[in-house]
């Protein structure tokens, strides 16, 4: 008697139909989940199995030959690293500064803070190809950097800024209010509070944000086609064009007949990279949250 379901939905269906609906919904939800799992497993296993064969030390350390059909991806990894380095070197200080301002200096309901947040919300939604257009018009043409690693890195820097600010801001917000009040009561200047109290506590949040930003940047393609370019040799300087990993995959699969095998392997490398990066971020995030509770 007690086990019986006592509720009756206000808009009751009644009788057999009700019973079917209740039992059926569980089935539908399980089916949906199984469907999604199968679908994503299909994708992941396809990339892993087909890419695995070509993955070797040589693949990672040799230059591509025959337009990428043979050889490896060493210069492409170098270009990817350089673009990421510029991207993070530019965006991290700006993101950190903005996050500190948003969480610690401006009042939460201030007009200016609201404006920054609003603009970042929109910025986070801007399609990557539009960043590409902007980067091409501004960095490549107006600033005269041409198709270069520097243009690509700067374009990406604009792109990862919202996610960077968001997660670092979370880091600062997680600092217990008592610590801030204590610092205030002791008459510490903002600068000292920042360096001796806020930053040390918020470090894991900052690292998580940083890593998330890298993960977003390394996955990006569209913003880089018209900014960092296509050239697949070792870049000679910041102002040289360089091909990043994702563009390499795109080029091999679309423009080069017979490039599929290496495209698979490059896709696997990119997939592993992104997964490692995201796992690191969520690992740090989790440990950080656990620490925040105590």
């Amino acid at each position: 008697m007690l086990k019986q379901d006592l509720s009756s939905p206000p808009k009751g269906f009644g009788g057999v139909f009700d019973f079917v609906l209740r039992q059926g919904s569980t089935g539908v939800i399980w089916l949906g989940a199984i469907f999604v799992t199968a679908w994503s497993m299909w994708l992941i296993s396809d990339i892993v199995f087909n890419g695995w064969a070509g993955l070797s030390y040589d693949f990672l350390t040799h230059t591509p030959t025959n337009a990428g059909r043979e050889g490896g991806i060493a210069p492409i990894l170098v270009s990817t690293g350089l673009v990421l380095a510029i991207c993070m070197a530019v965006s991290f200080p700006i993101g950190l500064g903005t996050a500190i301002l948003l969480s610690e200096i401006t009042a939460t309901d201030s007009w200016w803070g609201g404006m920054i947040r609003r603009s970042l919300d929109v910025l986070a939604g801007v399609p990557s190809i539009v960043f590409g257009l902007f980067g091409n018009a501004f960095f490549c043409n107006i600033l005269g950097l041409g198709f270069s690693i520097l243009s690509g890195g700067l374009t990406l820097a604009c792109m990862v800024l919202p996610i960077l600010i968001r997660s670092t801001e979370e880091g600062f917000r997680a600092v217990p209010i008592a610590q801030k009040l204590g610092a205030s009561a002791l008459g510490l200047s903002r600068l000292s509070t920042l360096f001796y109290i806020l930053l040390p506590i918020a470090v894991p949040g900052l690292i998580a944000g940083f890593v998330l930003g890298v993960g977003r940047a390394v996955a990006e393609t569209a913003a880089l086609i018209f900014t960092s370019g296509y050239v697949d040799r070792y870049p000679e300087s910041w102002l040289d064009s360089g091909r990043v990993l994702s563009i390499h995959i795109y080029d091999l699969s679309m423009n080069i007949a017979g490039g599929e095998a290496h495209a698979y392997t490059s896709a696997l490398v990119l997939l592993i990279l992104v997964l490692l990066i995201n796992q690191t971020a969520s690992h740090i995030g989790l440990r950080y949250l656990r620490r925040g509770v105590t």
Partner: peptide, 18 residues
């Protein structure tokens, strides 16, 4: 979460070849 991290070019590549 893994799905959300996969780069769009990898999705595109998978779509193209399978």
């Amino acid at each position: 979460e893994l799905l959300s991290g996969i780069p769009s070019v990898v999705y595109g590549f998978w779509g193209l070849v399978t």
